[in-house]
């Protein structure tokens, strides 16, 4: 057993003695992590700059009127001809119909997904039997792992054909009702339609809204819930009186983030929406979205058409960016309000 303490340089001055190693490494490491952090900013800036540059031809040809024109009939002169890549006269590259299609399908998806998501989130926090709460959470997370293309595959090969009959019955039911008969109508030749896309999107965005909502609901103080129950409230009254007011802005933000996902979702929609350009409220007719049309047409696109498709990407990027930024704003305002109330 060691019995003598090793010599310690106790008398050596701090400023002169040997320093622990790694002083340089410390500085380098800090800069490396900083660079990795800044990468996010760089990539976001590059996304914007590079896609705008590639779509500049499209923007600059007809300016904003291009974005808000609803005529999309892309024809360009093929490779090998003198005017290769240029637009054939009379061709339209308007984005409006696709912006409409994007907003409409995601609206349908949100309307379907929000009650489901909030319901399941409540199930896992307050309503479900305790032993079932975690398994349900796992199952919903499992949904998030199923690839988009698999949902699309199922939608087009399994769901589309039988659901035509359902659409037909709904359309028949609403036919005599004014206004609504313009919405609940359409011609689902192959079962591909706004509604089919909305259904598939709703399943796909349910996990993200559910998990974000669960996080919000978990922050409701137990004292408030028990307080409500102690006053004789039923569970539903407790949820309405104590849970919802506390988590309203969080739920709104979760829904907006889900909306952003729905608008950007590409492959599943590309397979089930049916690729038609129209500004129409008909739920059961084919339509198209910004993201889907890029995936459908980009492979063969040349010249101005490719530029236009990248331009549609820029439009999509800006819309989703706005939705996400608004979601964060709602969230941080809600947090501030809660903190101020404490």
């Amino acid at each position: 057993m060691a019995t003598i303490a090793p010599e310690r340089p106790r008398s050596q001055k701090l400023s002169e003695g040997p320093k622990p190693p790694g002083r340089e490494r410390d500085r380098v490491f800090r800069w490396v992590t900083f660079a990795a952090g800044v990468l996010v900013l760089v990539i976001l800036a590059l996304i914007f700059v590079s896609t705008v540059a590639q779509s500049w031809d499209w923007f600059s040809t007809r300016g904003l009127s291009t974005v808000f024109s609803s005529r999309w009939s892309p024809k360009v002169y093929p490779v090998g001809t003198p005017k290769a890549g240029q637009a054939v006269p009379g061709t339209g590259f308007g984005a409006w119909a696709l912006i409409f299609g994007t907003l409409y399908t995601s609206l349908v998806a949100i309307i379907l997904a929000v009650p489901l998501s909030v319901g399941i989130a409540l199930f896992t926090t307050d309503v479900g039997p305790r032993w079932l709460r975690n398994p349900v959470g796992y199952i919903i997370d499992l949904l998030a792992v199923v690839p988009s293309v698999v949902f699309g595959l199922w939608g087009v090969f399994v769901l589309a054909t039988p659901i035509r009959n359902v659409y037909q019955s709904i359309a028949d039911f609403f036919a005599p009702i004014p206004v609504l008969n313009k919405v609940f109508t359409g011609n689902p030749l192959l079962g591909t339609s706004v509604m089919t896309a909305g259904l598939i999107l709703a399943i796909m965005i349910t996990p993200i809204i559910t998990s974000l909502t669960r996080e919000v609901l978990a922050t409701v103080p137990i004292a408030q819930k028990e307080g409500a129950l102690a006053l004789g409230a039923t569970r539903w009254e407790m949820i309405r009186g104590a849970v919802f007011p506390h988590s309203r802005s969080g739920i709104v933000a979760s829904v907006m983030i889900g909306l952003g996902r729905a608008m950007g979702e590409t492959i599943a929609v590309a397979l089930v929406i049916g690729a038609a350009i129209r500004v129409s409220p008909a739920l059961f007719s084919p339509n198209n979205t910004l993201a889907a049309i890029i995936a459908q047409n980009f492979g063969e696109a040349q010249g101005i058409q490719r530029s236009a498709l990248i331009g549609l990407g820029v439009v999509l990027f800006i819309i989703t960016l706005l939705v996400n930024v608004m979601a964060r704003a709602v969230l941080s305002r809600g947090e501030r309000r809660l903190e101020a109330g404490k």
Partner: peptide, 20 residues
């Protein structure tokens, strides 16, 4: 002052301070 040296002096290495 630590053994007569300013602990927060500009030439002092905080890691060495904490080792001692």
């Amino acid at each position: 002052l630590y053994h007569g040296e300013d602990l927060y002096g500009s030439r002092i290495d905080a890691a060495e301070v904490r080792r001692r």
